Simulated scan of single mutants.
Amino acid sequence: METTPDIVLEPTAWRTRLTPSVGLVVVAAVYAGTAAVLFPTSFAASFGGIRLLMFYLLLPILMLLGLAFAGIIQQPGSPLGYVRAKIRSRGIGAMTTIGVFTLCLGAFTTYKHEFSSLVSFFADPLFARLDATIHFGDPWRWTRALPLPGFFDRMLYFLYSQLWLALVAGIIVFAAWMEDAATRLRYFTALLSTAILLGVVARLAGSSAGPIFYDRLFGGDRFADLMSALKTSDSGPETLQIADYLYASYASNETVVGSGISAMPSFHVAMVTLNALFLWSLNRRVGSIAWLYAGLILFGSVYAGWHYAIDGYVSIATVLMIWRWTRRRYVAPGDHRNDTATIASKPALDVAWTLVAWWQRDPRP
């Protein structure tokens, strides 16, 4: 079991070098620090009001409660002993990781908000045409043409707009407390790479607002039918309230919690894809549930009009490439524990998961 914190200096015979974890923290610090220096007002405002600040202050207590619950399950004879051992082995590293993540979350919101003002939404007309061309019609129409039960609309809203952030934060906390350094570093390297490549580079290269904002920004009635569908659906009014909240922040150039308009790429889809890959590498059953959730988020992003379908496709493809690259960095050659030996006699979904796992294999001899 690893007993060293994340941030350490390892002396060599000639020099002192940084561990991969320190390098990761340095990159994260540059990512967050750049946002704080360039946009100090937005960066400060991104941490929200008193409720969000109270959550940050209570986070250590919540984590201790979570560890105690895990101790009751993992070591029922001595749960406090489990908690003490975890704190000794991962306390400093986990708290450092979560603290850095909190700063990066503020930076992500800052970039998302400021980029909306700095770069016009020039790509929407192109993406709308491309989306309709490759899907033989607007994808949102196809999603709403399906004979879905009445509760499905409300369920999608809950999964996309309410549960998503809680699950993302929970998995990040879980990863921060992991003892396996290679698995932990792989996940956070992939997470930070996703934030930079998709949240900054792709965001600027494909600046777009999405179907739900299209007619407000460009005029006309290109997505009038979508707006009508939202107004008459079960959870559509709540979705439109969120859209109004984001548009008001954009129009007034005022940073608020969760502000910023961005369609390409879909960070919702990117994060659930990354978490599905991560959880699949740890446990097949949990990973299968995570992949199902990722599929629902991709569907919901189009169904509610937040994204063009291609936003999700780009996010998925990019995260898959990032995950494959991190395997080369953190998984030893020849270690195929995450591969599946055979696809024979498996259900269709298991075959799909197997192909994803096989694609992750280290190609080096």
Rank of each mutant, 00 (worst) to 15 (best):
V100D: 00
F151K: 10
F108E: 01
G93L: 01
G150P: 05
K86H: 12
H135D: 09
K86Y: 10
L146G: 07
F101L: 15
F152Q: 06
H135C: 13
A128K: 05
E114H: 13
T133N: 13
A128N: 07
G137C: 05
L126M: 13
I92N: 01
V119M: 03
T97Y: 06
T97L: 05
Y111P: 05
C104Q: 05
Q75P: 10
K112G: 01
V83G: 04
R90T: 04
F101D: 01
M155T: 12
T96Q: 01
G81W: 13
S117G: 11
V83Q: 06
L146A: 10
T97M: 03
G81S: 10
Q75C: 14
Q75R: 15
L103F: 15
A85E: 11
A94T: 08
F122N: 04
R144A: 12
G150F: 10
P149C: 08
A107P: 04
D131Q: 06
T110N: 01
I98Q: 00
D124W: 09
V100P: 02
I73P: 04
R129W: 13
L130K: 07
Q74D: 10
F136R: 07
L146W: 13
P139M: 07
F136A: 02
Q75Y: 15
Y82R: 12
S120T: 15
R129D: 13
P125R: 01
W140E: 00
D138V: 08
L80P: 11
W142L: 09
F121E: 00
F122K: 00
L148W: 14
R154P: 14
Q75V: 15
I73A: 12
P125N: 02
L80S: 11
D153T: 09
Y111G: 01
G81I: 11
A145V: 08
Q74N: 13
G91H: 07
S78E: 13
L118N: 07
F115Q: 04
P79A: 01
T96N: 03
G137W: 10
D131K: 13
G99Q: 02
F115E: 07
L130D: 00
L148I: 09
T102D: 00
F136E: 02
P147W: 12
G93F: 05
L105W: 15
A132Y: 08
A94S: 12
R88A: 15
F121R: 04
R129I: 07
F121W: 08
G150S: 08
L80Y: 15
I87W: 11
F136M: 02
S117R: 15
I98E: 00
L148A: 11
G91K: 03
L148E: 08
G99W: 03
F108N: 00
L80H: 13
W142A: 09
P79D: 03
E114G: 06
V100S: 02
S89H: 12
K112Y: 09
P147I: 08
F136V: 06
A128Y: 08
T110Y: 03
G99C: 02
R144Y: 14
P149G: 08
G106S: 04
F121V: 06
R141A: 05
P147Q: 06
T97K: 02
G99V: 02
F101V: 14
T97V: 08
I134P: 12
L148D: 08
T102I: 03
P76K: 12
Y82Q: 10
S78Y: 14
F136K: 04
G106E: 00
D131I: 06
R90D: 02
Q74I: 15
S120D: 09
R144V: 13
R141W: 09
D153W: 12
P139L: 05
R141N: 06
G137Y: 09
L103N: 06
